[in-house]
Nucleic acid binder design. Sequence first.
DNA 1: AAACTATTTATAAGGATTACAATATAATAA
DNA 2: TTATTATATTGTAATCCTTATAAATAGTTT
Lengths: 147, 147
Amino acid sequence: MAESKLQESIATLKKAGVRITPQRHAVLDYLLNSMTHPTADDIYKALEDKFPNMSVATVYNNLRVLKEVGLVRELTYGDSSSRFDCNTSEHYHIICEKCNKIEDFHYPSLDEVEKLAAQVTGYDVTHHRLEVYGICKECQQLEKEAK
Amino acid sequence: MAESKLQESIATLKKAGVRITPQRHAVLDYLLNSMTHPTADDIYKALEDKFPNMSVATVYNNLRVLKEVGLVRELTYGDSSSRFDCNTSEHYHIICEKCNKIEDFHYPSLDEVEKLAAQVTGYDVTHHRLEVYGICKECQQLEKEAK
DNA sequence: AAACTATTTATAAGGATTACAATATAATAA
DNA sequence: TTATTATATTGTAATCCTTATAAATAGTTT
């Protein structure tokens, strides 16, 4: 299934006239298979074994290209570096305030909010973003044990 | 009314044992009266006339202090630098993808989303964050004119 | 006033990201 | 296939935003 996603994505890239280089392929593949939401540096480090000569700039370049084609989304949270997410299905994020873990969760898309926002502000609305913050199960457990 | 907000805020600071220096006062005052969501540099530049010797570090220091006391919120959105917001009342933001302007808009708080997220993920939910993206009226106009 | 603490300032340092020029690679045309 | 052209990668330098540091200053408390 991840395999077919990869094929789809490659088709999208080809249609957009973007070359599929080994490095680009690897970045995309890594993102598709990572359940976490890695930073550019995470990706760089993860691919360092396969591509010992790859430059950080290449990671950023490819993330930009993938973003432009719409395959990848950039998430900017409180901390210093951006995180990247394969923009596959609509989903939201829930973030642990203790361990900074980011998990997906599904909820019917808030279309009414978009509509109302468009009405009130006159914006031509394209999308929205929602995150929920809290303490994850594991960190709750740790807190209990600490007492 | 902005005046009374300022008095309230100062009271909060005093209660928290934070000194009210001229620079701190100016940063707070500027934030309270700005409808935009300025960056640290915006604030620095805006106060440059009144405080020609003020350091950028002072702006950052004060923003941190004001954040800690709960008077100011830091917004980390798409673009590189953080924006700061004094508006303590609950509201959401709508962001222009062309000019990066951030405006407020009001919508009943999405409590059900928090509840459901808590159920599905087991998180102890504290709050959430929602942003709507699109093209603002002015940029729509500019696009039309460009054609 | 003296001692203490918090704040400001100026500057340096840090990290993340981008810009750039040279090189390498892939796609296309002859 | 070879030559040509366009695109991608690499390495490095530069940039931007933010934080750290140390010295100087100002405010508080005794």
